[in-house]
Structures are given as structure tokens and as C-alpha cells.
């Protein structure tokens, strides 16, 4: 009895183990590279943030802390800035695109946060932003916040993380 159930549970949980790793204030190994705002090669280092519940929740905290929420709203519904939970991406929804948007800013009013935010925090923000439109796995997505805002988007836009096509610019 114990052996098979152990095996089953180990299998179930092994998938979750990396998603739970927490590093209380650590510099990212990617920092040097992405400070030049190069798009990241996909693969393991990126999942360090995108597949990690802790990183995503840190991103949620930073989303308020760096005033992202001021423009894009606490729940990502938008306001001064465009909504982030609708799955439409003006400048591309791939992680590297979102990262570039944060670091370099965008012409219609998105400020460049590159000099203000350490790179590992930028990636945490990217992870959170992607979770807003349901583009991260359910088991790393943040739950509802302890606030009057609501948490999860009602629709799952896409489970995968493709390099989402940029939308045509609004007139």
C-alpha cells in the first residue's frame, strides 16, 4: 500500500516542487544579461520565474509597489494604461516582449522602469503580468488578494506561453 501511494504522490508533487522554491532576496543569475534588454532565450532560466509561485506573488507585490497598479489597475483591468488581463498585447505578449516593455517603456506613455527596478524583480513582474490573463499554469498563479480587488481573470486566454503576436497599433 505505502509503496504505490508514495510513488503516486511523489509523481503528483514532484511537478510542484520547483514552483515552490523561494529565494528571499537573491540577485538573479540573469541580471547582467538582461540589463541590456536582450530578449531572453526561452528555456530553463525563464521558468525560474514563470513557473515559480513565489516569484509570481512577489511580482504581484511589486506590481503595487512600483505603481504599475496605478495605471493598469490592481486587477489588471486598466485605467490610465491599457488592461493587462484581456490577452490582447499591443507590443507582444511573449515574456521577453513584456520584459522589454517594462525596461524600455513604450511610446504611448509606458515609462521606462529599467533604471528603477532590479532585473530579477522585472522578471517577477513579467511573471505576474502574464498570470493576469491566465497565461501561467494554474498552480503558480496567485490567488485573490486580501483586498477589495479581485484576483483571477475569468477566462483562460492561453495555457502556453507563445510569443503572442503584437496587435496592430490602435489608430
Amino acid at each position: 500500500m505505502r509503496a504505490p501511494s508514495l510513488l503516486l504522490l511523489a509523481l503528483l508533487s514532484a511537478a510542484g516542487c520547483r514552483r515552490e522554491r523561494r529565494s528571499f532576496s537573491e540577485p538573479s543569475p540573469l541580471q547582467a544579461r538582461v540589463e541590456r534588454a536582450e530578449p531572453l532565450p526561452s528555456g530553463e532560466p525563464l521558468s525560474h520565474f514563470l513557473d515559480n509561485a513565489w516569484a509570481v506573488s512577489e511580482g504581484a507585490r511589486l506590481f503595487g509597489w512600483y505603481n504599475c497598479a496605478g495605471c493598469h489597475s490592481l486587477g489588471g483591468g486598466g485605467g490610465m494604461g491599457p488592461p493587462l488581463r484581456d490577452g490582447a498585447w499591443r507590443y507582444g505578449g511573449a515574456p521577453a516582449d513584456v520584459h522589454r516593455s517594462i525596461v524600455e517603456g513604450r511610446p504611448n506613455g509606458m515609462p521606462a522602469f529599467g533604471p528603477r527596478i532590479p532585473d530579477y524583480q522585472t522578471w517577477q513582474l513579467v511573471a505576474y503580468v502574464l498570470s493576469l490573463s491566465g497565461r501561467l499554469r494554474l498552480d503558480v498563479e496567485p490567488g485573490r488578494p486580501e483586498a477589495i480587488a479581485i484576483g483571477k481573470p475569468p477566462v483562460m486566454v492561453s495555457k502556453k506561453l507563445p510569443s503572442a503576436e503584437p496587435l496592430p497599433e490602435a489608430p
Partner: peptide, 16 residues
């Protein structure tokens, strides 16, 4: 016009 997301009650400083 800004196509804000109506599922986020706090969007547009709560007006949505």
C-alpha cells in the same frame, strides 16, 4: 474606448 476589462472592479480607479 480604452477597452478596459470589466471583470476587474478596480479598473479605472474603481469606476469600471
Amino acid at each position: 474606448p480604452a477597452k478596459l476589462d470589466v471583470t476587474d472592479p478596480t479598473a479605472a480607479l474603481g469606476f469600471v
